[in-house]
Design a binder for these strands. Sequence first.
DNA 1: CAGATGACAAGAT
DNA 2: AATCTTGCCATCT
Length: 120
Amino acid sequence: MSCYPNIYQVVKQIPYGKVATYGQVADLAGLMGKPRVVGYALYQVTADSDIPWHRVINAKGEVSRSSLRDGTDDLQQLLLEAEGIAFKKGKVDLKQYRWQPDFAQIDQLIEGHVTKSAQN
DNA sequence: CAGATGACAAGAT
DNA sequence: AATCTTGCCATCT
């Protein structure tokens, strides 16, 4: 059934008016370097969920337009614009809108499962 | 079981 | 800057 609780937990942490990339979500969910899994995980939620799936975009700052989504890609952009996120030529300024989680948020997400090799 | 697909990302051209 | 190529890995056929 392909449940990815970690991914959903991470996406739920994205605040209103902010966005995160698939790679970023994958990284926080413990799926380092596996952003495609995030895409599959989000493909299952789409609607009737408490998950702000629309706040997850690709690294190019653009909503992934795909023919498989029944137009939910357009809905995604509309939802983001409704949250005050401006689309510049169909792209979002990640420097301005990218979610920067606090250490407390990260700690809440990992809950002591990561290697915690705090290099910084 | 093997090959193809994909809501991605980073590097090369 | 835009497009192509490769890597990644769960799901589909």
